[in-house]
Design a binder for these strands. Structure first.
Lengths: 237, 237
DNA sequence: CCACTTTATTTGTATTACTATTAATTCAAT
DNA sequence: ATTGAATTAATAGTAATACAAATAAAGTGG
């Protein structure tokens, strides 16, 4: 019998999550091909040394992220890549763990280019009073840190700032990006892709425009920030 | 004992999916509040008349979409809305089923405005040979249908066209939108939000620009399409 | 009043048995 | 020989029960 939780990298994970992670790794890395039928449940149980209960919960997890598809008699099949939910932060975590992150960083930067200016514009129009308070506090922190720079705390505040913008759009479909953004930033930290300066003035421009409710100015300010920081972001060198 | 599959609206669903759907409905509709602890597993088993196995698989499904969070001794909690993965097509299906779709359509249109022009630009640069073939075939179909208009087949071709653009970006993070788009289009059909004309010329402009590899022109053509069709899309009136 | 221990509750895991679905096979009728 | 309905077998789906682990809360000793 297995322990309910095993500590991995300081985080306790239940068994079925560990199993799911291991299977996901094999799928995402291409070790098992798309459309391939993975071994039957009994085989996998023996392979991972877990009960069928846990294994099935693991498979349900992966199924719901679009990686697998089960049918009686035929088995469990790896789906086409186009069905994988890359905007799921857990999946993204697994993807980053594999390594080969330059492509991931590059693709994500491309997505930010499309989304953040529009998100900033929406936030300028729709941010609630409470969200404006949070944004103010966070920008204040950025401003302070920029004067006495320290990488880790800056990155944390920077992340929170952009996260809040997504949450302030008032658009449900922008919410998932907040978490994806955090996952990426945390990866930047642990993989220590050092970033040069803070672009505090560009951030201030975004902040001011949002607080003023000027969506056009917010959009443009975000475009300016992205184009200025392009050279220093991971994946662009 | 329950049947393994029950037919609902012509589709066979396993028990744990039915249970998950029912719980998801309550969460998404706000019937159970955010941060609320839902009843214990045993209670829910009795309530839904299913075994703990199935119930737990249902909960795993919802957990992986960010709706729930379980901890021993404390129970299973509904998470904050900002953790809900709105870009999961199954979750979106459930959301649409609730009704009150005008906000959903409006938010989605806003997202399309941010993403599709950039997706078209990326597709112009990165579409593979095979993807160009598929795109050609699909546009051909659109062109044919536009001359002898029939709503359902047009919507289907229109959907496939925009779906292919997302798939042709060569950017993993754009892939999930393809499925979300399809879910939305299918909802348009069943909820019969009639759309006026085909905008075939605007579509042709996008198609030609992508085939020519002209990313700037593709982006602009997509912007033109969106601004022209804005008036007629659901949620904008 | 604080730190430590115990307890009770809830989720996590394991095991086994059985059911439902469906691909593949068999076999009869045409 | 071809078709098509019935049978078989393999695999996922469901159920029931037992026990382990985690942890909030209550209790205990200093």
């Amino acid at each position: 019998m297995q322990n309910a939780f095993v500590e991995i990298a300081g985080v306790k994970r239940s068994l079925h999550v560990q199993v799911a992670r291991e299977i996901a790794r094999k799928i995402l890395s291409g070790e098992v091909a798309q459309n391939e039928i993975i071994p039957g449940e009994m085989t996998l149980c023996e392979q991972f040394k877990v009960s069928r209960t846990s294994l099935r919960e693991a498979i349900k997890l992966l199924t719901s992220k679009g990686l697998l598809e089960s049918k009686p008699k035929v088995g469990t099949r790896v789906t086409d890549r186009e069905n994988w939910n890359f905007l799921d932060s857990q999946l993204l975590d697994w993807l980053i763990d594999i390594g080969d992150n330059n492509a991931v960083y590059r693709d994500f930067l491309s997505l930010r280019n499309a989304l953040e200016p529009e998100a900033a514009a929406l936030a300028a129009e729709n941010a609630t009073a409470q969200q404006r308070i949070l944004l103010s506090a966070t920008f204040q922190r950025m401003d302070d840190i920029s004067k006495d720079f320290e990488l880790e705390s800056w990155t944390e505040a920077d992340m929170e700032f952009h996260r809040l913008i997504f949450l302030s759009t008032g658009n449900s479909f922008y919410l998932p990006f907040a978490n994806v953004l955090c996952t990426m930033f945390k990866s930047f930290i642990t993989h220590s892709s050092v970033r040069g300066s803070t672009c505090i003035n560009e951030h201030r421009a975004i902040y001011s425009a949002i607080m003023a409710g000027d969506s056009d100015k917010a959009r443009q300010a975000n475009i300016d920030l992205l184009s200025k920081s392009k050279r220093r972001l991971p994946g662009s060198n």
